[in-house]
């Protein structure tokens, strides 16, 4: 066990607490209008979504474009627990995430013998099937949607986001994470080195789905209404765009992508008719001039702070 309280960790922890405190202060003293709070919570939700998709697409090198399906499972299951059965919020969120993870397992096992574009279309198909199942379930309001009260506060969203990212980050840095990266780099070589590729693909899928489900739960318990249309393949594309924009394979890149896209969408809200046109142009320009995304596969790191104190930070990504 290496030192948990080295300088980098402490600085990062301090930064997170400070960030939380500043925003919480702005909210408590009513300086920040509630409309901006919506954007902040959405950023937290999208950070979880993009990092979890990054786990599948960026780290493991698979090609999933059905992430909204997992989000939908999490959203609806958690909504059923909290709104219909009046269960506690945390239980609802957990139930949603676990249900989504199970869905990830169910999809992952049979479809992982596909690769590339065929896997992509199969995941897309799965996402759409999930959506249509909810659309046909009157119990959760059918196509018209399901209204529930808003229970998620900024604190909930922020804490859950930070926890999710730390967990996923640790997974990537672990032996299992390395195995996943080896699949991305060269599946055949990985297999011949004794990496059980199917197992790790399924693990990545299940884990990605778990966090997508969590994000879906947060979304459902914040947004007042969930509708099957919200989780269409266009939502999956949104998440994919965030991941690629930030840098496929970079955990911090996914975070940056989520922040940039959500902020762009919020800042452009005053010109609704131009919003998506500008987004599209930015997206194309970004890809043309920097096809690897903002951060590429690099990680944004605080390691410069730790050079003196932390002798353990020797291995680099």
């Amino acid at each position: 066990m290496r030192n948990l309280f080295n300088r980098q960790n402490l600085v990062a922890l301090l930064g997170i607490v400070l960030l939380y405190a500043v925003i919480q202060g702005l909210i408590v003293f009513d300086i920040m209008p509630p409309f901006y709070k919506l954007t902040l919570i959405l950023i937290c939700i999208y950070i979880i979504l993009s990092t979890s998709l990054n786990l599948i697409n960026g780290i493991t090198g698979q090609f999933s474009i059905g992430h909204a399906g997992f989000m939908a499972v999490g959203a609806y299951i958690s909504a059923i627990v909290t709104a219909i059965h009046h269960g506690p919020l945390l239980l609802g969120l957990l139930a949603g995430a676990i249900a989504a993870a199970l869905a990830g397992l169910v999809v992952g096992l049979p479809t992982l013998r596909l690769n590339g574009d065929y896997l992509a279309i199969a995941t897309l198909g799965f996402g759409e099937i999930v959506r249509i199942v909810f659309l046909n379930t009157e119990y959760v309001g059918g196509a018209a949607g399901f209204t529930l009260s808003s229970k998620i506060t900024w604190t909930w969203a922020f804490v859950l986001m930070v926890l999710s990212v730390i967990l996923m980050k640790n997974f990537v840095s672990s032996t299992h994470g390395r195995a996943c990266i080896s699949i991305r780099e060269n599946e055949i070589a990985a297999e011949s080195m004794g990496v059980n590729t199917t197992k790790y693909k399924v693990i990545a899928f299940t884990m990605g789905a778990f966090f997508a489900g969590l994000a879906g739960g947060i979304y459902a318990n914040y947004m007042y209404i969930i509708q099957p249309m919200t989780f269409s393949f266009l939502k999956s594309f949104d998440i994919l765009v965030m991941v690629v924009l930030g840098g496929l394979g970079s955990m911090t890149g996914g975070i940056v992508g989520a922040i940039v896209m959500t902020l762009a969408s919020a800042l452009l809200a005053s010109v609704p008719e131009w919003r998506l046109v500008i987004t599209a142009v930015l997206l194309i320009a970004m890809m043309l001039f920097r096809p690897t995304g903002i951060l590429g596969t690099k990680e944004f790191s605080l390691s410069f702070l730790g050079k003196k104190g932390d002798k353990n930070a020797t291995s680099k990504n």
Binding site: N9, A12, L19, L26, T252
Partner: peptide, 27 residues
Amino acid sequence: MRLFRKGFTLGMIALLSASLVAGCGTT
């Protein structure tokens, strides 16, 4: 275990700037 090694600073900056923009809103 390098729990927080890879940072949140960029995220923080963006969130902070968002909150600053927000602060200038309707008072």
